[in-house]
Design a protein around this nucleic acid. Structure first.
Length: 640
RNA sequence: GCCGAUGUGGCUCAGGGGUAGAGCAGCGCACUCGUAAUGCGCAGGUCGUCGGUUCGAAUCCGACCAUCGGCUCCA
C-alpha cells in the first residue's frame, strides 16, 4: 500500500506503480504510453472487465484492453452494436430493442419491428451510425436498482428489456449505458465514446427468434462488424471474399465433383471426379479400420416399423424419418445404422471371449432435414456415415473410448485439421434411466480427462439413447461442423435384449459404442474441399497428372507417358487438344491438378518430362521414371 | 419450418410490357505454338414452375419450387 491518498496498481508485467486515489485505467494507460492511451478501449480491473473511466479506489491489478486483445475487440464490437441500435431507433422510432452482443468478428442486434428491414435500410442505418460516431458521444454508465430499471424501461416502452431485467439474478448490479439520447440495459464495459469507433459495416438482415426459441416471435437481426482502421476492415472483407472462393459448393461445381439438383433437394449427386475422392477416402478408411480390428458389414436401407418402434426411433426420431409401405406392412428408411448393426449382433450367440466386436458400416442414411437448413454437402438429406458399433464388456469401455479418440485424432492430423471437442449430455426427449446416463456421461468425461483433452460441455445435446463426444471441424467461413462423434449407449442393448455368455456361463448385457470418424463422407468431403481450397493432396486428387504436348507432333510421345503413368496406377489425363501450352496450363491450374507434364521436342528426344507443380511452379526437366517414383512416394505417404 | 434476398443458354452476368443479349465453355476451320486465355465462324435459351392482369408478360401481381444468408435443428 502506498501513501494514504495513493493506491498501488499492479500491471500485467508484474510491476507495481502508485497512483492517486480515484485515478482511472485511462490515466494509467496514458501514463504508460501516449499510444496505449490512444488505443485503450476498456480495462480489466482485478480480472474483471470495466470502463476506462471507472475511478479506482483501492489497490488493484489493471490490464488495459486494446483491439489487439480478443476482449478488447468484444468491447469495441459491443459498443458498435449500441451505436447501431441508436441509429435504428432514430430512423425507426417504434422499434423494440432485444439484445445486441458482440460475436466472433462482429456483432448483431435484434429488433422487433412492425415492417422487416429491407437491404436499402442498411445503408441508411450505416450512414446514421457514422453521424453518431462523428458526434463522439460519451458512453455513460449508470447503476440502478431493479425497480428503478423496471420503471425506466417501462417509461421507454422497451418490453424486451423489462423481460430481461425480470430474469436477471437477484444479486447482480443492474446497469444502463447512455450515449446521447440512447439508453440501453447493459452490463458493459464500453469504449469511452462513440468517436472511438472508426470503420463500421453492416452486412445483412436475418430473422432470429427471441431467445433462440422457435416458439417465440421472430425478430429482425442485423449483422455487422467494425474495426479501428479502414485497412483492417478491408482486409477482413477481402478474407471473406477469399473464403467464398473456397466454398465447397462453388468448387464442387467448378471441379466437377458433385451437384445438387432441384429434382432432389438435399440429395447430392456424385460425379466421376467426386467418386474418386470418395473412393480414396473409403479405401483409406477400410485399411485403417482393418488395422484397428474392425469388421465391415452392410445393412439394409429399409427396415420394418416394428423394429424402429423397438429401437425408440419411432418415438424419438420420427420427425426426421421417411416412411414407406411394402405390401401391407409399414417400413421406414433408416436414419441411423445402429439397429441394423444390432440385428447382425443378435443373429447369433456371442461369448465374452469375442468382445469387443467392432462392426463398421459405410451406411447411407436418410434424414428429413428442414428445407432451410440444407447446405451443399455439409447438411444434406442423405449421407453416408462411416459408422461403427462396438459391442463390449463393461470393463472394456474405457479402452475402447480411448482407442476411438486416438483414431479420430490420427485421421484429422493426416489432413491437417484443427478440431475442438464437445461433450453432449442428456437431451430432453431421451430414453434410459438417470443412473445409466450418469454412468455413460462419466465414462466419456473420464476418457477425455485421462487424455488431457480440452472440451466444452454441450448440455442436453446428446443422442436420444446416450451421451456423446463430438469432434467439430471448421469450414472456410469459420463455421464449425460436427464430424466425428463417439456415443456411449447402455440403452439399445437393453431395448434389443443383447447378450453375451460370460465366464460364468450366464447371459450378460454388453455395452455399445456408436462412433463415426469422418462423420458423413459427404460433409467430410465438403470440409476437405474448403480446407484445401480444392487443391487436394495428390493421393486424393481426382486427376493427379495432366500431360501436355506442345504441338500435335508430340501427341504420340504424350500418349506413351500417359500409358506409363496409367499402368502404375496414377490418375492421368492427356490434353492433346489443339491449344497453346499456356491455355492448357491455365486450365489445369484452374482444375488444381497437382502435376502438369509439358512435353515437346526436347523431352521426346531425351525421354524426359518438364514438370510443373500447381503451387510450386516449374520444377525442371527429369526422366519420366524419376517423376513417377517421386509422385508414387508422395501418394504412398499421403503427403501434401 | 421461420425471416429476408435471389432465380435469364453449361458457367458468369446485362437487359426489362411489344415476343432475348455479351463474355467464357462447346462445336467447326485456320494457326503447330515452351509454363495461367491464338484468331475467325457456328450452334445453344418456352427468361425456375403454375396461375392472374393485359391486345400483348421474360418484364407487373399471386401462389408454389429451388438456391443463398441467418434463426431453430443436426453428421
Amino acid at each position: 500500500m502506498g501513501e494514504a491518498n495513493q493506491i498501488a496498481i499492479t500491471l500485467p508485467d508484474g510491476s507495481t506503480r502508485d497512483y492517486p486515489y480515484g485515478t482511472t485505467a485511462w490515466n494509467i494507460a496514458r501514463d504508460i504510453s501516449p499510444r496505449l492511451g490512444r488505443e485503450a478501449l476498456a480495462a480489466k480491473i482485478d480480472g474483471k472487465p470495466a470502463d476506462l473511466g471507472l475511478p479506482l479506489k483501492q489497490d488493484a491489478t489493471v490490464e488495459i484492453l486494446t483491439f489487439d486483445d480478443e476482449e478488447g475487440q468484444e468491447v469495441y464490437r459491443h459498443s458498435t452494436a449500441h451505436v447501431m441500435a441508436q441509429a435504428v431507433q432514430k430512423l425507426f422510432p417504434d422499434v423494440q430493442l432485444a439484445i445486441g452482443p458482440a460475436i466472433a468478428n462482429g456483432y448483431y442486434y435484434d429488433f422487433d419491428t412492425r415492417e422487416p428491414f429491407v437491404p436499402e435500410d442498411l445503408a441508411k442505418i450505416e450512414k446514421e451510425m457514422k453521424t453518431i460516431i462523428k458526434a463522439d458521444l460519451p458512453f455513460e454508465r449508470t447503476e440502478l436498482s431493479r425497480s428503478e430499471a423496471l420503471d425506466l424501461f417501462e417509461k421507454l416502452g422497451q418490453s424486451y428489456k423489462i423481460e430481461l431485467i425480470e430474469d436477471l439474478p437477484e444479486d447482480v448490479q443492474i446497469s444502463i449505458y447512455r450515449q446521447g439520447d440512447f439508453t440501453d440495459l447493459c452490463m458493459g464495459p464500453h469504449v469511452p465514446s462513440t468517436g472511438r469507433l472508426k470503420s463500421v459495416k453492416l452486412f445483412n438482415v436475418a430473422g432470429a427468434y427471441w431467445r433462440g426459441n422457435e416458439k417465440n416471435k421472430m425478430l429482425q437481426r442485423i449483422y455487422g462488424t467494425s474495426f479501428p482502421k479502414k485497412s483492417l476492415l478491408d482486409e477482413y472483407l477481402f478474407r471473406l471474399e477469399e473464403a467464398k472462393r473456397r466454398d465447397h459448393r462453388k468448387l464442387g461445381a467448378e471441379l466437377d465433383l458433385f451437384s445438387i439438383q432441384e429434382e432432389g433437394p438435399g440429395f447430392p449427386f456424385f460425379h466421376p471426379k467426386g467418386m474418386i475422392l470418395r473412393n480414396e477416402l473409403e479405401k483409406f478408411w477400410r485399411e485403417e479400420h482393418k488395422k484397428q480390428g474392425y469388421q465391415e458389414i452392410r445393412t439394409p436401407i429399409i427396415l420394418s416399423r416394428a423394429m424402429w418402434e423397438q429401437s425408440g426411433h419411432w418415438d424419438h426420431y420420427r420427425e426426421n424419418m421417411y416412411f414407406t409401405k411394402i405390401d401391407e406392412g409399414d417400413y421406414a428408411v433408416k436414419p441411423m445404422n445402429c439397429p441394423g448393426s444390432i440385428l447382425i449382433y443378435k443373429n447369433k450367440l456371442h461369448s465374452y471371449r469375442e468382445l469387443p466386436i467392432r462392426m463398421g458400416e459405410l451406411g447411407l442414411v436418410h434424414r428429413h432435414e428442414l428445407s432451410g437448413v440444407l447446405h451443399g454437402l455439409m447438411r444434406a438429406r442423405c449421407f453416408t456415415q462411416d459408422d461403427a458399433h462396438i459391442f463390449m464388456l463393461p470393463s472394456q469401455v474405457k479402452d475402447e473410448i480411448t482407442g476411438v479418440i486416438e483414431m479420430e485424432d490420427a485421421f484429422y492430423k493426416l489432413f491437417g485439421f484443427d478440431y475442438h471437442l464437445e461433450l453432449s449430455t442428456r437431451p430432453e426427449n431421451s430414453i434410459g434411466s438417470d443412473e445409466i446416463w450418469e454412468l455413460a456421461t462419466d465414462a466419456l468425461r473420464e476418457a477425455l480427462e485421462a487424455k488431457g483433452l480440452p472440451y466444452k460441455v454441450n448440455e442436453g445435446d446428446g443422442a436420444f439413447y446416450g451421451p456423446k463426444i463430438d469432434f467439430h471441424l471448421e469450414d472456410s467461413l469459420g463455421r464449425t461442423w460436427q464430424c466425428g462423434t463417439i456415443q456411449l449407449d447402455f440403452t439399445m442393448p437393453e431395448k434389443f435384449d443383447l447378450t453375451y455368455i460370460g465366464e460364468d456361463g450366464q447371459r450378460h448385457r454388453p455395452v455399445m459404442l456408436h462412433r463415426v470418424v469422418f462423420g458423413s463422407i459427404e460433409r467430410f468431403i465438403g470440409i476437405l474441399t474448403e480446407h484445401f481450397a480444392g487443391a487436394f493432396p495428390a493421393w486424393l486428387a481426382p486427376v493427379q497428372v495432366c500431360v501436355m504436348p506442345i504441338a500435335a507432333r508430340h501427341a504420340e510421345y504424350a500418349r506413351q507417358i500417359e500409358k506409363s503413368l496409367d499402368e502404375k496406377g496414377i490418375r492421368v489425363e492427356n490434353d492433346t487438344r489443339n491449344e497453346k501450352i499456356n491455355y492448357k496450363i491455365r486450365e489445369a491450374q484452374a482444375q488444381k491438378i497437382p502435376y502438369m507434364l509439358v512435353v515437346g521436342d526436347r523431352e521426346a528426344e531425351q525421354g524426359t518430362v518438364a514438370v510443373r507443380h500447381r503451387s510450386e511452379g516449374d520444377q525442371g526437366t527429369m526422366p519420366l521414371v524419376e517423376f513417377e517414383n517421386k509422385l508414387l512416394e508422395e501418394i504412398r505417404t499421403k503427403s501434401y
